[in-house]
Structure formats: C-alpha cells, structure tokens
C-alpha cells in the first residue's frame, strides 16, 4: 500500500520570508516497513507504508497477532524494522539514542497494562518522564501535580500504582504520556484492561487530549467501538494493511471531533 502524500500547508517563515506553499511532511511515516522475528521465519509486519498527519486520530485495528502492536512499536521506535524506514516529522530516525530523544519530547505512549513503575508514587511516575526534559526537581514536581490535577488525581499524588483503581492507573498513564507535551499520543489497547464504563471515560479523556492540546492520536485496538471514535481507521491483517480510510480522506482530513 502506498504512503499518503504530504499535505500542502501555508506557513510564514520566521525571518520574514513568505513561503506561500510549503510541503509539510507527515508527523510519522512508515515506508515499506517490515519486521521479522526468529531469523525471518516469522514475518510480523510486511511492506507497510503509512503516513499520519499532525492533526489526525487514527485507529489501528486488527485481530490478536495481526501485527498492529508491532506497527505501533515501529512507529514509536520501540522496535527496529527489519526492512524499510520510519520517518518522524520528515526525518529518518535511526538508533536507540535518536529514538529516545524523539520519544522524550514528541511521543507519549499509553500501554494496555499501564506500565507504571510500582516503586514510585503517582506523582513520581509522571516526574520520571520529565527527568532530563524539564529543569529542576521543583519544576518537575509542579508540572506533575498540574497533570495529576488535570486528570482528577490530585488527591492520589502520593499513592503507589497498586493503590489506585484500574481507571485511575490508566488516567495516570495518560497523564505521564502527556508530561512532555508530545505531538503524538499512541495508545496500545488503552481500554483492554478496563470495564465498559471506565473504557468510555478513558476514550473521552484521549479525545479531550486531542482537542485541547492538538496532539495527534494513534490507538491500537481490537475494539470496534473504540476504533469508531477515531477519524481514521487502518485495518491490519497478517502484518499488512488491508484497508485505510485515510486514503479516501487525504484531501479532507477526518474531523478529530469524532472522538468524544
């Protein structure tokens, strides 16, 4: 499947130059990416090309073992493609350190199992994401407390993850993912461990994040209800893209407001 073409945007140059029409690269772009395991005996992802823009909300759907989580890992640089190239904001990113720098400042990740550090309090779980990105301990503490308050966890700041409910943990995980004000929020089965009511609440929060912060969102899910809340739907099967609603919406991006 071919990658989406870069969208044309109009911007003004900082030094007074007027760029009337400038090619704006996608936020993240996979070009003919493949990922093999076990010396090539298992092909988890094969020849995937995908471009995701700055203002999109994308659901990557597929059955268990279809390769959707592997694609998500490749998008975030958590995994290394066997073939092809991953570009972030138009630049090829290679190597652990380069990807770490991109994740630290531009990508927030929410995992199905929350992936909170059990030895740290709720506040510290956010602060740990800020270490190295935000100046002093005091600044980190203030930012963490702001985020906790924003997600209704102000009273839970000193509690360890084990002392929080499932919904609270997922809210904390989202707060942590947003700590560095990323351009892209990716969520791997964000509702997979939650009941229906909490799932709706979490998806509502993710939708708000997109609206309030202008953060692009990629959600990996096997839940069609969750997928339906996103502006674009990419279906994966056997490690390949079977359908991509974004292909039709290239010229008219899907409204983000579909996430509620």
């Amino acid at each position: 499947m071919a990658a989406r073409s870069p969208r044309l945007s109009s911007i003004s140059g900082k030094a007074g130059y007027d760029f009337s029409l400038v090619l704006m690269p996608p936020l993240v772009e996979l070009s003919n990416v493949g990922r093999d395991f076990d010396g090539g005996r298992i092909v988890a992802v094969d020849d995937v090309s995908l471009a995701i823009g700055n203002d999109e909300t994308v659901a990557i759907v597929g059955r268990s073992g279809s390769g959707k989580s592997t694609i998500l890992n490749l998008i975030c640089g958590l995994d290394r493609p066997t073939r092809g190239e991953v570009r972030f904001e138009g630049r090829a990113v290679n190597g652990r350190a380069a990807w770490a720098a991109v994740r630290a400042s531009k990508i927030g990740i929410v995992f199905q199992n929350f992936s909170l550090l059990q030895s740290l309090s709720a506040r510290e779980n956010i602060e740990v994401a800020l270490l190295g990105n935000l100046g002093g301990a005091r600044q980190r503490r203030v930012r963490a407390l702001e985020l906790l308050a924003h997600f209704g966890l102000a009273e839970r700041a000193t509690l360890r993850p084990a002392e929080l409910s499932g919904g609270e943990r997922q809210r904390l995980a989202i707060a942590r993912a947003l700590a560095n004000r990323p351009k892209l929020l990716v969520a791997d089965e964000p509702t997979g461990s939650l009941d229906v009511q909490t799932s709706q609440s979490v998806m509502s929060i993710i939708g708000n994040v997109h609206r309030e912060f202008g953060t692009a969102v990629i959600v990996v899910t096997h839940d069609e209800d969750v997928a339906a809340l996103c502006g674009r739907r990419v279906e994966i099967s056997d490690g390949r893209i079977r359908s991509d609603s974004g292909m039709a919406a290239m010229s008219t991006p899907a409204p983000a407001s579909r996430i509620r």
Binding site: A100, A101, A104, L117, A129, L131, R176, N180
Partner: peptide, 15 residues
C-alpha cells in the same frame, strides 16, 4: 520491564 518503560518514556541509553 522497568528499563523498557524508562526507554519508552524517552530515557536515553546513556541515562
């Protein structure tokens, strides 16, 4: 796993 989480949060190999 903890190291994986830190890496996912953007901790550099050096850190």
């Amino acid at each position: 796993f903890e190291i994986g989480v830190l890496a996912a949060l953007g901790w550099s190999p050096r850190r």
